[in-house]
Design a protein around this nucleic acid. Sequence first.
DNA 1: GCGCGTGATATTTTT
DNA 2: TATCACGCGC
Length: 720
Amino acid sequence: MSGLRELNPPQRKAVMATEGHVLVLAGAGSGKTRVLTERIAYLIEKIRVSPARILAFTFTNKAAGEMRSRVERLLARKDLPFWVGTFHATGVRILRREAKHIGFGNNFAIFDEDDSLSLVRDIVKGKEWRLDEHPPSLIRNRISRWKNALVPPGEALKHARDTVEELHAQVYQRYSGELQKCNALDFDDLITRVVELFTVHPKVKERYARQFRYVLVDEFQDTNAIQMVMIDALASQHGNLFVVGDDDQAIYGWRGATVENILQFDRVYDDTVTVRLEENYRSTNRVLKAANELIAYNKGRKGKNLWSSKGEGECLQLFFADDEIEEARSVRETIIDLIRSGFKRSEIALLYRTHAQSRALESALRHGGLPYQIIGGVRFYERREIKDLLGYLKLVNNPRDDVNFRRVVNVPRRGIGKVTLERIEKAAGTASLSLSLRKKGGLTEVPKLQRERVEEFTKLIATLELMARKATAHDVLVEIIDRTGYREYLQEDPKTAQTRLENVEELLVETHRFALTAKDPRLASFLEEIALISDIDTLKAEETVALMTLHNSKGLEYRAVLITGLEDGLLPHYSSFEDDEELEEERRLLYVGMTRAKERLFLFSSANRLRFGNWTGNKPSRFLDEIPMEHVEVTSESRMTRAGQELFKSIDARSAPQEQEIVVQSKRFYVGADVLHPTYGQGTIRKVEGSGRDMRVTVYFPGAGEKKFLALYAPFQFLR
DNA sequence: GCGCGTGATATTTTT
DNA sequence: TATCACGCGC
């Protein structure tokens, strides 16, 4: 345990406060992963806790894997049986054992977003509603919200607030029935069903709560209400709950995450010990100060001030471009310069607000011959050909999966169209499609030719199913591609054939790799792995520049970070303009991006952008006004562009102490604010009078008494 | 049952 | 720009 000595005092406190409720407010780069791993190691080695009695939640599978290997390295042991995983993965783990209590087989399938959406779409179609009048994604969202509020399908109708919602409630009811029929759970179920299980079967809950003597949660600011219920249940027996988070990095409010979990924690558990980690080990002070000043504009926060002993560092660089092509070009040149000055490609990240922005950037990088990897975007597993093949694999793994039956029954085309499918459904009644077809003689209404085709398909699936019991996922996939003539089918369209075939090959490589490395190489295990995989989990340790959204950059760090698209409408995004809280979340998003940088931070803003094939104009992000210009160098190229010239006028105006600046700054002058004065030291604002240029503040300094200042010229630093 | 043309629509972020 | 639902004609 030599690691303990290397921790700073608050970190050590966080590691060693093993009993009761502990809330760690961990600023960006303050070593929270370190604290988590040291704490687990400490529990196992010093407190002598059996590893199986420790449960840790992480935000991604990748983080879970890293945490496990770091703990094992610390203790120089292998295969420690402590639980670490995402909420979803942990939910699956529990539900696999307890499925019978909630009326499912323990071999239940997991419906991904797409399966679940298809099911909603099928239900809407089945009701003969128009898809454009009843958008499946909207309904799916509504269902998700009901589920997360623990409203069962039977009661949704009562909760519906208008006639449209009443229709959605009908879909919800049907949707639940269909899931049951398919022996499948959707993403929401993986958590809500655990909570339901614990409510209906307190004995089961008790068993788990007794097992887990210590529960730890990372990225606590991005947990939602139902996850909190799950955490609380699991920690209910021993009451040893350790959560780590940073309210300034909460970026999943739109997904139902609530900072209230952090803000209320010490009120919910009155034995809470709070530890603050404010020393940053990641970034230089320029980066940190710029980020601190920006985030200080947010109101709803606990407040903290990060500092670093890493030295001043280099200025941030800001580049204004006329359009996104020029922006991409300067991104490329910046990266090339960085590499020339000794940066490795893998030490550089390129971030943006929306996936759509990656196009221009990718093309510039390709032209510069710069290898990159892109996280997310059009995801591999969402491509048509991959979905088809996975559809087969899913159906083979779980013949009750009607959603994937419908997806693949006529792919490649085998003459089973709409009408035949309807007849199959009618004949099946309430039974699942694939299974009912295995009984002879049901399809009397289907013409002979079609019936033979259906029988052939049924036989194919049954054969593959038999095979899948022993064979690897890879072998089953090879068989599917062969038997269905899937390659030939893709070749029918010469325009897309090549890329699609390459994707199929990639899937084959993927399953092959899985067959060689996985503990259980069989189909079910493969499908489970890919169901829970997240974009960021696919980030490979390669010598490439990483491209990703700001959301995906959470938890990562890079020597150099480039953030593009600092424009009003993009960052902050349009959708947040109306709502202060959403605007604050956008600000946090930029804060998260900025604090990923260890040494160099580059910001890019473009005056024009191509949207749906039309050029549209954008103003520079309002957040740029909130980053103090003393830490920022506007690149000389910007002076050359039209956009840059315009902007210079406003920046020059801004750097002179004028009305505008005071308006922006004024919200920082309020009674009770702590300030630091170069000669008088620390003080507190007692009084604020007037506004704009004439604003006066009275400050009380313990060493020097009360002093009055004109806010405009007050040489304060603000403390929190 | 299938293919094709047309027009509407999308880009916010995702476990 | 790229994709997809829809409807028509074969």
